[in-house]
Write a protein that binds this DNA or RNA. Structure first.
Lengths: 166, 166
DNA sequence: GCATTTTCATTTGTATACTAACAATAATTG
DNA sequence: CAATTATTGTTAGTATACAAATGAAAATGC
């Protein structure tokens, strides 16, 4: 294997899913199997998704949150930093770092809002705009690859169920 | 609202889900709606889950990954650090930090493996063992609360679908 | 119109999570 | 057995992600 032993491939499948006959006397084992819990399953599905994301976007591509911000900005309007955070499900501290890194790479620009001195308006730079079509193409491939193990109907069902856990 | 404007509650629902008539001339908008992509939906579902986790476990409770490690160790056996990482879907660098923080809090112990000088064996401390029953109780409540918006059948379906995205 | 509250952005601190590079030790193979 | 390869654990660096606290500015209420 070329890439390091990342969790996403090498140790992908959990090793010990055995469900002991509840014998040994270490307190009450209870019927709790970590590998069957929502949180654990979601974490692992996310790890796989992020690995796919990085593979398809490439080494100099945006991270998932960076792309989310760019995607929302691609509509063309200037948006305040915090509002952009809400639109992409990032809190103010998180969106700040994401925008700062996008700005370092020349993909977005920050400018003061003339109407509200607290606000910082964020928008795509010309370079950012140029990147959008290619990124959207890759983003579609990422979603498809992530859902590849499922049929169309199953994928639709999963998305609908996930949307209800908001 | 008492807690800061965290994404998990205040800005929970995406704001702009409007699907413009593909008018404006900023390149090709393509039919890509961030809010409908697997990655985005999983990220938001995870954010909500983690918020529930922290609320139920409490301020001095373990984090999700810390609990995952403790849960696997509760079987009673000593496990090498890397193997424990594979069992809980964490790479070596990540499990190291998790175990270090559990050790600082006196919940796990690290000891050299007599048969393999590279290995570090990890096990629950007495204090860690005592904490397990209460933590398992809370962990079940966390899974239930996370899945609360869904019916039994829907929850089962979601878990089955997530398990296939591994 | 002024005090209270809210919003916006920032900073600091903690915890994941991964890549990459490394050293030490085991296991394998010629 | 010696050389190669693999495994284990560590360190350093980057990027999320959130809590909590702060200061500045805007909105609200009375």
């Amino acid at each position: 294997m070329s890439r390091q032993d990342s969790v996403a491939d090498t140790a992908a499948k959990p090793i010990a899913r055995q469900r002991k006959p509840s014998s040994a006397g270490t307190a009450a084992p209870m019927d709790y199997v970590l590998d069957e819990q929502v949180g654990f399953l979601m974490r692992r599905a996310q790890q796989r998704h992020i690995a796919i994301f990085q593979r398809i976007m490439g080494d100099d591509g945006p991270t998932p949150t960076q792309f989310a911000a760019m995607s929302k900005l691609s509509a063309g309007e200037e948006i305040s930093q915090n509002l952009l955070g809400r639109m992409t499900a990032m809190d103010p501290a998180t969106i700040k770092g994401v925008i700062a890194r996008l700005e370092e790479r020349g993909l977005v620009e920050r400018l003061p809002d003339p109407d509200d001195q607290r606000r910082v308006r964020v928008r795509l730079s010309a370079k950012g705009h140029e990147a959008i079509p290619g990124l959207l193409e890759k983003a579609k491939a990422i979603s498809a690859a992530t859902l590849a193990p499922l049929s169309r109907e199953e994928a639709e069902r999963l998305l609908a169920l996930l949307a209800r856990l908001d």
